[in-house]
């Protein structure tokens, strides 16, 4: 049994000893990341717990394999959850109160589905060619075209725009053909 499977099984079987081990092994990194990105210790604790719950619920619904190591997978899920939380907090100031009063189980399920959707997008981005991936990453990061030209060694902004257009079309097709993308969508 791989380490990842051992940790996943521990989460669905409520195995106290291994769960303590998960805390000791992986929490410090997550905490460091969140503190570095404007969070407080209590935020790190909440995010870590929510993501472990998320993983257990997901694994219980359908068993899955962790391609990288469990620590890396957990860290990325926590980082995503924190980015999501920061975005929510920054919009919450103007959000009507009733919108933040969702049932916790519903709130957590939405976060889980958002993570699944992110994985579909990310995995499809990883499937396309390296040069396409590179130019699209710059584009999605809202890098000015002028900068994309120098970074990618293109001859002009027109070439950069055409390249982004083509690569984005390939990525779009790949995502739309992914059965997971369609099954996640509202019917």
């Amino acid at each position: 049994m791989t380490d990842s499977t051992r940790y996943l099984n521990a989460l669905v079987n409520n195995d106290v000893k291994t769960i303590n081990e998960i805390y000791e092994q992986f929490y410090p990194n997550v905490k460091r990341y969140i503190l570095h990105r404007s969070g407080q210790e209590v935020d790190a604790e909440d995010i870590f717990q929510q993501v472990l719950l998320q993983i257990s619920v997901r694994y219980r619904k359908q068993k899955f394999e962790v391609k990288a190591d469990f620590g890396g997978y957990l860290f990325i899920a926590c980082a995503n959850r924190w980015v999501s939380e920061v975005k929510k907090r920054s919009t919450r100031v103007t959000t009507p109160l009733h919108e933040s009063l969702k049932d916790d189980a519903v709130e957590q399920s939405l976060a889980l589905l958002q993570q699944e959707r992110w994985e579909v997008f990310k995995e499809n981005l990883d499937k396309i060619s390296e040069s396409c991936r590179k130019v699209l990453k710059l584009f999605f990061a809202k890098t000015p075209y002028k900068k994309i030209v120098t970074e990618m060694g293109y001859s002009s902004e027109t070439v950069a725009r055409q390249r982004v257009f083509k690569c984005k079309a390939m990525l779009t097709e790949s995502i739309k053909n992914d059965p997971r993308y369609n099954s996640l969508k509202e019917l």
Binding site: K61, K87, L113, Q114, R117, F140
Partner: peptide
């Protein structure tokens, strides 16, 4: 989804998948 500093908060998900997860929670 693909800008590292952003997150997609859209909630247009398949209702039955959402309910299944909510029950597990």
């Amino acid at each position: 989804n693909l800008n590292e500093n952003d997150w997609d908060l859209t909630e247009n998900f398949n209702q039955s998948a959402m309910e299944e997860y909510a029950q597990l929670y």
